[in-house]
Nucleic acid binder design. Structure first.
Length: 398
DNA sequence: AAGATAGCCAACCGCTGTCGC
DNA sequence: AGCGACAGCGGTTGGCTATCT
């Protein structure tokens, strides 16, 4: 570890005085900084090179934009943080004239607080209520697992083709495409297991899924966050069934046939949600996934891994959204998010986190808006949401 | 008016990655 | 391959200021 460099030569620490600033500015503007470790000597400063570098980058650089952050900048920071996490330097690189330190300070001192006030967890960008739901679902899933372990109805047989069946035929899971590196010997017929299968199927990325349950809950919170709908997970305490709820009186409401029976194969809850765009009528949706339904028999469930094919893309919940694999993330950011490019800061002001938005989404991913909207903005908004969903699901982009 | 508290922000610290020798 | 120097990054700290009691 060693002592900090400033101790080596009785170097100054703390705030910079104007004379020091002037020396540093004069030196760097004349000669450039070159090797920072040599700057203090050349500029006659009693500071370490690291300190000089920091002072220059964060305060003295001529291209810095001083002053308070605009609302547009704050919104952009929130968007970028939801995609990149605490990658302050990467966020700063997309806000010309702003430093990572400045953005970090703003985030910790102001934005975090604002998000919490709006009921949004600043770390995950999920609604706090959704997080509570997740915890409930997780707790109940664990209980169900315990129950399942002791149930004769759910006596599991596993064959060499990863085909798992229950002896009672009440639950049948076809797992032919189950990833070979996935442990199946203890695959529980639980809600969690269902969620894993469900989410893996509906991710269009071929990336491996380490936290499928998180992905579903992330997706749901994403839906809730971005579309303003109240999609959430809950548990029917009478039946121990998992409920996917979508309830929104304002703009994004789905109604599906919720009468799931043993004879009624539901291909996918979200596909079902997405398939019915004619029902934006303010009613609520509740999809109940019954443990004894033949839900898992559907061919719509195949694993979104290496054998992922085009047919699965067709059940993409955002059919009109380009496949993220077709778009480079960095290109997207630069063409759509950078100020002065296709999407201006003003456009970005469409505040994801505001209580109301003028944009309405149909369940097929197209936009309905009260006012006319330019195609580029429509596309960008869809992209934003799509990428945010992916980012939420996979943690970060590589 | 004075002390306590909270918020903000510049700067520091420690770690990691890269590069050259 | 190993080492040291350096740059860069993110987390944390400390001091200043504003507000509250």
């Amino acid at each position: 570890m060693g002592r900090p460099c400033c101790y080596k030569k009785k170097l100054r620490k703390g705030l910079w005085c104007p004379e020091e600033d002037e020396k540093l500015i004069n030196h760097v503007t004349k000669y450039g900084h070159g090797c920072w470790s040599s700057v203090p000597k050349l500029a006659a400063l009693q500071r370490c090179g690291k300190s000089c570098r920091l002072r220059w980058i964060n305060y003295l650089r001529p291209d810095l934009k001083r002053g308070t952050f605009s609302q547009q900048e704050e919104n952009l920071i929130i968007q970028l943080h939801s995609l990149l996490g605490n990658k302050w330097s990467q966020i700063a690189s997309r806000l010309p004239g702003r430093t990572d330190n400045e953005i970090k300070n703003l985030w910790n001192s102001s934005i975090k607080k604002k998000l919490r006030q709006k009921g949004i967890d600043p770390n995950t960008h999920k609604l706090l209520s959704v997080i509570e739901n997740e915890e409930k679902v997780s707790a109940i899933s664990m209980n169900i697992e315990k129950v399942s372990e002791g149930s004769s109805e759910l006596n599991i047989i596993e064959d060499s083709n990863y085909r798992i069946k229950s002896k009672s035929s009440l639950v049948t899971m076809t797992m032919d495409n189950y990833p070979s590196n996935t442990t199946t010997s203890a695959a529980p017929l639980t809600h969690k297991f269902f969620l894993e299968r469900f989410v893996t199927t509906h991710e269009t990325s071929t990336a491996s899924c380490n936290k499928p349950l998180d992905q579903l809950t992330s997706y749901l919170s994403f839906e809730k966050l971005n579309y303003g709908s109240n999609i959430g997970l809950s548990i029917n305490s009478n039946t121990n069934n998992l409920l996917l709820n979508s309830k929104n009186s304002e703009m994004f409401t789905h109604q599906v046939n919720s009468s799931i029976t043993n004879d009624n194969i539901l291909t996918s809850p979200i596909a079902a949600i997405a398939s019915n765009d004619s029902m934006r009528n303010g009613s609520s949706t509740s999809i109940e996934l019954q443990r004894n339904s033949s839900f898992f028999d559907s061919n719509a469930f195949s694993w979104g891994t290496a054998d992922y094919d085009k047919s699965e893309k067709e059940v993409n919940i955002h059919p009109s959204v380009p496949d993220p694999d077709d778009i480079k993330w960095s290109e997207y950011l630069h063409t759509q998010l950078l100020p002065g490019n296709a999407i201006t800061n003003d456009q970005i002001t469409q505040d994801l986190y505001s209580a109301k938005s003028s944009i309405q989404f149909t369940t097929q991913g197209s936009l309905l808006q009260n006012q006319q909207q330019q195609p580029s903005l429509q596309t960008a908004n869809i992209y934003n949401k799509h990428y945010q969903r992916i980012s939420d699901s996979f943690g970060q982009f590589s």
